[in-house]
């Protein structure tokens, strides 16, 4: 419409129409966006923590009851109190803290190296289609291959050194991280790419402002799996490779306890390995993931389900 026609229109009438529309829309908006009252943080955390804690207590009680009632041989089936005693002595002797620290340090460092390798690799595969076609199946295949299978080769290549452990960790974690990023990018809704193009984004802007943020949930899932694979691979590597310049990690402690036929110490170590895995998941990944999903409105369904 040419500007002079606008000028002919009655401005007062327009203004009245505008105020009226404002009121109508405000009314409809208020109807359609009910307040989503979220449960308080404390209650939510309690709801997530109490059931598993109760389950653990029940399992421990059943275990203790079994040892009291059935009197199994303590070297074959130690009770929870035996394991607790073993835990206490391993902790006070300093063996357990050293093992935890060594393994955790290696696990975290190995994971960070895996992120530093897997992320650019994933970006490259997501961006270059022929490379993805060529390398994609291989990387998916590596995810299936248990990384412990690399231990013998790594020992032959690197000897009994930290390099062997890190190599096995990387072979476990890098494929997960790469795959997570690639599938995250693949699942970006095509209309978001189109809108980026329409808004005039350059290739770089499209990647940094639209595609990467949209791929974040998939990438985070890959990181989570990457950490799990790092930790598992690390334990496998530590169990198999003992001696040389390899320090004393949880896997080494597990292997040593087996050689001493000390089942209580074996169970102590297993529980510690499990606990560390759970703690890292709860402290590092869960809060980031919850925040990410809640911002995008992807958490509503699960929150109601709880």
């Amino acid at each position: 419409m040419p500007p002079e026609v606008i000028a002919q229109r009655d401005p007062e009438l327009d203004a009245r129409g505008r105020t009226d529309l404002r009121t109508l829309e405000a009314g409809l908006d208020a109807l359609q966006t009910g307040d989503v009252s979220s449960r308080s943080g404390v209650r939510r955390i309690l709801g997530g923590v109490v059931p598993p804690v109760i389950l653990v207590i029940v399992l421990l009680l059943a275990w203790q009851l079994y040892t009291v009632v059935a009197h199994p041989r303590p070297d074959l089936a130690p009770g929870p109190l035996d394991v607790l005693g073993s835990f206490g002595s391993a902790w006070t002797s300093g063996r357990l803290p050293v093992a935890v620290l060594t393994s955790l340090q290696r696990g975290v460092l190995g994971f960070l190296i895996a992120v530093a390798i897997g992320t650019p690799l994933g970006l490259l595969l997501a961006e270059v289609r022929w490379l993805r076609r060529a390398l994609g199946p291989l990387i998916s295949g590596l995810q299936v291959l248990p990384s412990v299978a690399w231990v013998p080769a790594a020992i032959l290549w690197f000897g009994l050194t930290d390099a062997t452990v890190y190599f096995v960790v990387l072979m476990g974690a890098v494929p997960s991280i790469t795959n997570g990023l690639v599938s995250g990018v693949e699942q970006v809704p095509p209309q978001l790419r189109r809108v980026g193009t329409v808004l005039g984004a350059s290739r770089l802007q499209l990647a940094t402002r639209v595609i990467l943020p949209a791929a974040l949930p998939g990438y985070l899932a890959g990181l989570k799996q990457g950490w799990a694979f790092s930790w598992r691979s690390l334990m496998a590597a530590e169990i198999i490779t003992v001696g040389g310049t390899i320090g004393f990690g949880l896997g080494s402690m597990l292997q040593q306890s087996r050689e001493l036929a000390d089942l209580a110490a074996v169970l102590t170590t297993i529980i510690t390995i499990l606990a560390i895995g759970i703690i890292v998941e709860l402290l590092a990944f869960a809060p980031v993931e919850r925040r990410l999903l809640r911002r995008r409105g992807l958490l509503v369904a699960t929150a109601v389900g709880r």
Binding site: Q191, V195, R296
Partner: peptide
């Protein structure tokens, strides 16, 4: 400028 059937807003 273009508008689609889906709003295609960036959800984050």
């Amino acid at each position: 400028a273009v508008m689609f059937q889906e709003s295609a807003l960036l959800p984050w």
